[in-house]
Design a protein around this nucleic acid. Structure first.
Lengths: 189, 189
DNA sequence: CTTGACCTGTAACGAACGTTACATGTAACG
DNA sequence: CGTTACATGTAACGTTCGTTACAGGTCAAG
């Protein structure tokens, strides 16, 4: 029964989602959550320990939300393509900030692996696997799966940067249509 | 004739390409370029001024390299699709670190616009336009152009993160093939 | 009431940050 | 030689960083 710390973790998650990971420091973080830097160190041992625990908790929440997506009964009407399902899920207000933070983490780890790569192994590594879980089995050859993940990643980044929800959604619809058309051609051959 | 400063800018570009933008500080940067923090402030006025000038110079170099790509006489053999041409260009050792830095800049600006967005306007904004310049005119409708940029962005990020050059290149080849197949289907209809 | 485990505030540490003051070197020009 | 403009080294400023020392609260158990 450590409701103290758990409540603190919840506040910290909210803060990280707002502020991102770069230029993160204890005192402003503590002020924003109504505590003090002293308390954060007391509860988490160090800044690094705090990040480990908070990012871990974040990932758990995200994974839970994702598993709800997988288990959701198929909506009535025409079945959505998996990639579209994923896109709508990612754009939901509840999930969007989480994914934003994941992408920041991923890019920070590229240039600064010593500081950030440790958190990635528990997050983005799983993330890519989660996306694969949505693809039907016959489409899981490496090239196509990589392409699907890349389309999602690229459009998500474009959305984060420009905020143009309409255009990016049209683009992913276009991709889905193109894939369908291409399948038709191959089937004819 | 300011060869002093110009040489300094060249060294700084090399350093930024290695170290990235996050957690960048003057003293280590100065040590790596053989000068002192005092000198950097003297020449650029402030850390922010340094970033403005150095990133500006970087972008100039990158744009020059890109314009060489556009003007290159078509290689013999079957013409490469534009996206493939761009991919090979981005993977060239000379260009790769520049693009890496651009992506870091873009993602940092998402969570921390006050600090980084100013540099983006002169860089990534142009970058997206440059990609468009490679597409044939009939494919420049917003949805498809956005999709192409996203495929490139997503695969490039995947490449940065995993280093798997083979798989990402296969994925972009797959995309090009799929687009071709889809065009055939539409043509039949 | 006392003990002891958990929690929290105040104040400070040493280090690194961006920046500045001040003095000095260099070299071209009168 | 003296002046002037540019270039550079040394040392410090004030601030913020992560972290710690120390003292004190709170509150159930004995």
């Amino acid at each position: 029964m450590q409701t103290r710390k758990e409540a603190l973790v919840e506040s910290l998650i909210a803060c990280l989602l707002e502020r991102g990971l770069a230029d993160l420091s204890l005192r402003p973080l503590a002020a924003a959550t109504g505590t003090s830097a002293r308390l954060l160190i007391y509860h988490f041992g160090s800044k690094e320990g705090l990040l480990v625990e908070v990012l871990e908790a974040m990932q758990a929440q995200l994974r839970q939300s994702f598993s709800r997506l997988l288990q959701r009964p198929p909506a009535k009407g025409p079945a959505k393509p998996p990639l579209k399902l994923l896109w709508d899920w990612a754009l939901a207000p509840k999930n969007f900030p989480y994914l934003k933070l994941l992408y920041e983490l991923q890019v920070l780890a590229v240039q600064n692996p010593d500081a950030y790569a440790q958190y990635l192994q528990r997050n983005a590594a799983n993330w890519s696997g989660l996306v694969l879980a949505l693809l039907p089995a016959q489409e899981r050859d490496p090239a196509f799966a990589t392409l699907c993940v890349a389309v999602f990643d690229g459009l998500f980044i474009e959305l984060m940067s420009t905020g143009d929800r309409k255009r990016t959604t049209q683009a992913i619809d276009r991709f889905i249509r193109i894939v369908g058309d291409a399948r038709a051609t191959r089937a004819d051959a």
